[in-house]
Nucleic acid binder design. Structure first.
Length: 585
RNA sequence: CGGGGCGUUGCCUAGUGGCUAAGGCGCUUGCUUUGGGAGCAAGAAACCGGAGGUUCGAGUCCUCUCGCCCCGACCA
C-alpha cells in the first residue's frame, strides 16, 4: 500500500482524551477513531491488525475442531426470557421493539441463540460432541467505557460454544480451549496468564480468565509464586489464621462515637482479629421464571483484620446484584449504622458470616444501639447466618494450597472460558437421546476472546516514546518502505518485488521530508523498515532497521534484499514463542 | 447511579464581562528545500456543543440540555 493513498492519517499530537499510552498511540497512528463513548471505528491500519488477530484465532479454533458460524446481533426477547436472563441482566443489554411491537434485544452474548440452534440440530448422542464459534459484533451498554479499546460498548468478540453428552466431553473441550487460548495469545505475543475466575452472569461452575497483567488493568489477580495458584480476587481463596479461645459471656460496652475498627481496637485495646465488622448491602434478587424482583438487605460479617470481597458476598447471598445500603434501609432492619451486627436482626435479612468469624470466639461486635458494642460475641450462640468465604484475598496473605505468600497484580481480561453445564440446555430444553433412548440435557461450555481488547493490550505492551511497535504477527504490514530519493522507478521496483515475494509493504511515497517519514514510520511501528537513501543507493544498497531496535542498521545490496528480508521476517516470527500449556485440574 | 472535570477551526491550546475571537500544528497555492516532524510568501477554515436567561454589551456570568473524559458504584 502506498502511503499517499492511505485513507487515515497520523496525528502530530495525541488527543487529550487519550489516557493510556497504547490508546493514545493507536489514535495518533491512525489505527482507530472514536465516534462516541465506547464506540470506535477501525481505520485501515487498525482493521488490518484486527484481521491478523482474527485469523490467528480462526486457525487455532479450527485446529481444535470448531466450525465457524455467524449468529444475529438482534435476538427476539423470547429466548432470553426462557433462560431468565431477560430479567436478570440489567440495562447492560439494550432492548427495543420492532415495528409490530415484538420485544427484541441486542444480544450481548449468544448462549441463548446457539442453544436455540442446538436444540434443533442436536437430537442424538451421535451428533455430539460439537463445537461452533463466531467472530461477531457485540453491543453491551457498559455504564462506564474507558481506556480506548480496553473497555468499549461495541466490540468484536470471538465466542465459541461446545456441546457434549457428558462432563468428560465438556472437560475435553474445555482443556482444548485452555491450550488453544494460550497458543492464540502466544502467537499474538501477548503475555497472559490464566486465572481461576467467577462465572458471573454466565452461570456454570468452572471458569478461567486469561489476563494480561498491566497496571491499567481493572481486575485484581492473586498469584502464588510458589505453587502457581492464580485467581481473580473476586473468588481468590487464602489460608486464614485462627486464634482459638473458650467462649465467654457476652457483655455490652459503651463505645462513644467509635464506628471504625481502628478506633474500636485502640479504645478497647484489642487486636483487630478480636472484632467482627459488618458490611450492609442492598441485594436484588430476581426470580428467573417470572422476572419478579425483590430487594433484601444483605449483611456480610467478617473478622476485623480482614475485608469483605463484595463479589463473594453477592455470590454467597445468591443475589443478582448488590449495592451499598442506605442508612435508612439499615435502620429499618433494626440495625445501627456504625454499631451494626447481625445480632437480633429481622428474618428477611440475609446474613452471611465469613468462616473467620464463624470459627472465632469472643469477638467484639456492634450492639445495634448507638454508641454501644458487645464484647465476646459468638456465632450460633448470639446470632445465626449462612457461613461462607466472603473475605478478600490480599498480597501478603497465605496461599490456600501451599501456604506460600500471595502476591497481587492488576490485569486486563482478554479471554475467558466457562464450563456452563446444563444451565442453558435445561432452561431451553436442549436435549439429546442417549444410547438407551433417554432424553438428557446437552452439556455446554462457552468461551470468549475480546478481539479489539487484545489489540489494545498489544498496543499497551509494545510501544515506546516514539510510537507503536506491534509484533510481526499483528502489525498491519510487515515492512515499511521509506523512500528518500527522487528515483521513483527504483523504489517502485523494490516495492513491487517485495509484494510479489509475498510481503505486506507500506510504501511511503509521499512528498514529505525525511523527518516526517521517519516519525510516521516510528509511530506506526511496522517491524521491518527499509530506507532508500541517496548515498546508499549510489552503492546499489538500502538500509534495513528493525522497529524494536532503531539503533542498529543493516546495509544490504539490492540483489540480496529479498533474501535478507525473508531471513529477518523468519527470525522475527521464530522469536514469537508458542507455549504448550496443558490444563491441569 | 453518586462525585469531579472539560466542550473555542481537522488536532493541540490561548482568551476569565468590552473593539473585527488569537496562536501553533495540519490544510490550499507558489517558490526554495529532502537522512529525523524544513524555509519564505499568500490563503481557506470557528455563528466559541445547543437552548434560554442576566447585561448597554456574553466564548467569558446564571439555568437547563447534549456530548466527552476521569474517580467510585457497576462490568460476558
Amino acid at each position: 500500500m502506498k502511503m499517499s493513498q492511505v485513507f487515515s492519517r497520523t496525528l502530530r499530537e495525541i488527543p487529550s482524551s487519550a489516557d493510556s499510552k497504547g490508546y493514545g498511540l493507536l489514535v495518533k497512528a491512525g489505527f482507530i477513531r472514536q465516534l462516541g463513548a465506547g464506540i470506535f471505528s477501525l481505520l485501515p491500519l487498525g482493521l488490518r491488525s484486527i484481521r491478523k488477530i482474527e485469523n490467528i484465532i480462526r486457525q487455532e479454533m479450527d485446529g481444535i475442531g470448531a466450525q465457524e458460524i455467524l449468529m444475529p446481533l438482534v435476538n427476539p426477547a423470547d429466548i432470553w426470557k426462557e433462560t431468565g436472563r431477560y430479567y436478570s441482566i440489567d440495562k447492560e443489554m439494550s432492548r427495543f421493539e420492532d415495528r409490530v411491537g415484538r420485544q427484541m434485544v441486542l444480544a450481548m452474548t449468544h448462549e441463548e441463540c446457539v442453544t436455540d440452534i442446538a436444540r434443533f440440530e442436536i437430537d442424538s448422542y451421535k451428533r455430539l460432541p460439537s463445537l461452533v464459534y463466531q467472530l461477531q459484533t457485540k453491543w453491551r451498554d457498559d455504564p462506564r467505557p474507558r481506556a480506548g479499546l480496553i473497555r468499549v460498548r461495541e466490540f468484536t468478540m470471538k465466542d465459541s460454544y461446545s456441546f457434549d453428552k457428558d462432563y468428560e466431553g465438556l472437560e475435553k473441550q474445555y482443556k482444548a480451549h485452555y491450550s488453544a487460548y494460550f497458543r492464540i495469545f502466544d502467537r499474538c505475543a501477548l503475555p497472559t496468564i490464566a486465572v481461576g475466575s467467577d462465572s458471573g452472569m454466565m452461570g456454570g461452575k468452572v471458569a478461567h480468565e486469561y489476563m494480561y497483567l498491566s497496571p491499567i488493568g481493572e481486575d485484581t489477580i492473586i498469584i502464588c509464586d510458589s505453587c502457581l495458584y492464580t485467581a481473580n480476587r473476586q473468588i481468590a481463596l487464602f489460608e486464614k489464621e485462627y486464634y482459638p479461645e473458650e467462649p465467654k459471656e457476652k457483655e455490652e460496652v459503651y463505645t462513644p462515637e467509635l464506628t471504625t475498627i481502628e478506633q474500636l481496637t485502640q479504645f478497647l485495646k484489642v487486636p483487630p482479629h478480636k472484632t467482627a465488622k459488618a458490611l450492609f448491602m442492598m441485594g436484588t434478587f430476581v426470580d428467573e421464571t417470572t422476572g419478579e424482583e425483590t430487594q433484601k438487605l444483605v449483611v456480610g460479617l467478617v473478622r476485623g483484620d480482614l475485608d469483605i470481597e463484595e463479589n463473594k458476598l453477592q455470590n454467597s447471598a445468591k443475589a443478582n446484584a448488590i449495592r451499598p445500603a442506605h442508612p435508612e434501609e439499615i435502620q429499618k432492619a433494626h440495625m445501627e449504622v456504625g454499631f451494626g451486627s447481625p445480632i437480633g436482626v429481622k428474618e428477611d435479612v440475609v446474613v452471611i458470616v465469613d468462616e473467620s468469624v464463624a470459627k472465632s470466639n469472643n469477638l467484639v461486635a456492634g450492639a445495634n444501639k448507638l454508641n454501644y458494642h458487645y464484647l465476646n460475641t459468638n456465632f450460633k450462640r448470639d446470632y445465626d447466618g449462612i457461613v461462607a468465604d466472603i473475605a478478600m484475598a490480599k498480597a501478603g496473605y497465605k496461599c490456600p494450597h501451599c501456604n506460600g505468600l500471595l502476591k497481587q497484580s492488576k490485569g486486563i481480561e482478554v479471554g475467558n472460558i466457562f464450563q456452563l453445564g446444563t444451565r442453558y440446555s435445561e432452561s431451553m430444553n436442549c436435549t439429546y437421546q442417549d444410547e438407551n433412548g433417554k432424553r438428557l440435557p446437552v452439556i455446554m461450555g462457552s468461551y470468549g476472546i475480546g478481539v479489539g481488547r487484545l489489540l489494545a493490550c498489544l498496543a499497551e505492551e509494545y510501544n515506546d516514546e516514539k510510537g507503536l511497535k506491534l509484533p510481526i504477527t499483528s502489525a498491519p504490514y510487515q515492512i515499511h518502505l521509506v523512500s528518500l530519493v527522487k528515483e521513483e522507478e527504483v523504489v517502485e521496483k523494490i516495492y513491487t518485488d517485495l509484494k510479489n515475494s509475498g510481503f505486506e509493504v507500506l510504501y511511503d511515497d509521499r512528498k514529505e521530508s525525511a523527518g516526517v517519514k521517519f516519525a510516521d514510520a516510528d509511530l506506526i511501528g511496522l517491524p521491518i523498515r527499509i530506507t532508500v537513501g541517496s548515498r546508499a543507493l549510489k552503492e546499489n544498497s538500502v538500509e534495513i532497521k528493525l522497529r524494536k531496535n532503531l539503533q542498529e542498521s543493516l546495509l544490504v545490496s539490492l540483489d540480496s534484499l529479498l533474501s535478507e528480508v525473508q531471513k529477518i521476517a523468519e527470525t522475527l516470527k521464530k522469536e514469537i514463542e508458542v507455549r504448550h500449556i496443558e490444563y491441569e485440574n
